[in-house]
């Protein structure tokens, strides 16, 4: 059957612009300005072959390079947000987000194996309202931690978020409390939670589960902070210094364990999972 949806939607990210018909098209890297052949960028896991700039990726693209082949099994995929507060324009925003991301919500959860190590995973979606956290995102992540606690599975979570989803008002704030509590139970049972901060991770997600990992990794160059850069500039009435709120800045200040480029993530995460195997350690 012909997929008509594809006719009406624009590419959802830098990688997709080159799928098939776009072959030969080049894009300028936002960091170094070099023209990149998009096939090459795709082969490079969405990074610039010249300067290593990491482009944002969708959850499915993450799954493709991280999870062992065919090992990903999605969980809670039917959960979606509703306009509970009757917030003007929210319904339309949700519809647009679904079209832009081809997903139902701003996070994809499931079980998979990474380098043969079973784990629970979540990937936030930059194409769905910039991974903003509303009730459905909070509920999916909470359920994932609860499932992982029951099954004694480690959780690997990739964060990307503009913060809480303001169209759900105070209910989105409550997701910070709900997810933290579920994460706390998972942690108290001796399970590993590995968070990977990707561009951008800000606001309520930074101030809850993103910064609660037993081990916190980050992608090179990712913007990570509590307040968004513009909010800070407005507060202090001056420009921010170069490199402020980057993953490298956080590493320097002691808030992340390691910066791991995409090409090394699978191996690094696999190793860490192996070293945290329950009842026996690395084998």
């Amino acid at each position: 059957m012909v997929n008509l949806m594809g006719l009406f939607r624009s590419p959802q990210n830098e990688l997709e612009k080159n799928s098939g018909e776009a072959e030969g098209i080049r894009n300028a890297c936002p960091r170094c300005g070099v023209l990149i052949d998009l096939t090459e960028q795709q082969e490079n896991l969405g990074t610039c072959p010249n300067c290593g700039h990491h482009f944002r990726l969708s959850p499915r693209e993450r799954i493709a390079y991280l999870a062992d082949e065919d090992s990903f099994e999605e969980l809670f995929g039917d959960l979606r947000s509703h306009d509970v507060l009757g917030f003007p324009g929210y319904d339309q925003k949700l519809r647009n987000a679904k079209l832009a991301s081809r997903e139902r919500e701003g996070v994809i959860c499931g079980r998979c194996r990474i380098e043969n190590e079973p784990c629970a995973v979540f990937f936030m979606d930059p194409n769905f309202m910039m991974g903003s956290m509303g009730t459905a995102v909070g509920e999916k992540i909470t359920r994932l931690f609860e499932t992982a606690t029951r099954e004694s599975l480690p959780v690997v979570g990739f964060t990307v978020s503009g913060g809480a989803r303001m169209q759900e008002g105070i209910l989105s704030l409550m997701q910070m409390a709900k997810t933290s509590a579920a994460l706390g139970v998972h942690s108290a049972a001796g399970n590993l939670y590995l968070s990977v901060l990707t561009d951008p991770t800000t606001g309520g997600v930074t101030a809850s589960f993103a910064m609660d990992g037993d081990i916190i990794l980050a992608e090179p160059g990712a913007t990570v902070g509590f307040a968004g850069p513009r909010v800070i500039e407005q507060t202090i009435r001056r420009r921010l210094p170069q490199g402020f709120q980057t993953a490298e800045f956080l590493l320097e200040h002691g808030f992340v364990d390691r910066i791991v480029p995409r090409s090394e993530q699978r191996e690094t995460i696999g190793k860490l999972l192996r070293m945290h195997r329950k009842g026996g350690g690395a084998q």
């Binding site: 101030a207 902070g225 509590f226 307040a227 800070i232």
Partner: peptide
């Protein structure tokens, strides 16, 4: 919570 340089440097989130 304060949105300033020092707050970010010292890990507000």
């Amino acid at each position: 919570a304060f949105c300033g340089l020092g707050a970010e440097e010292r890990g507000q989130g």
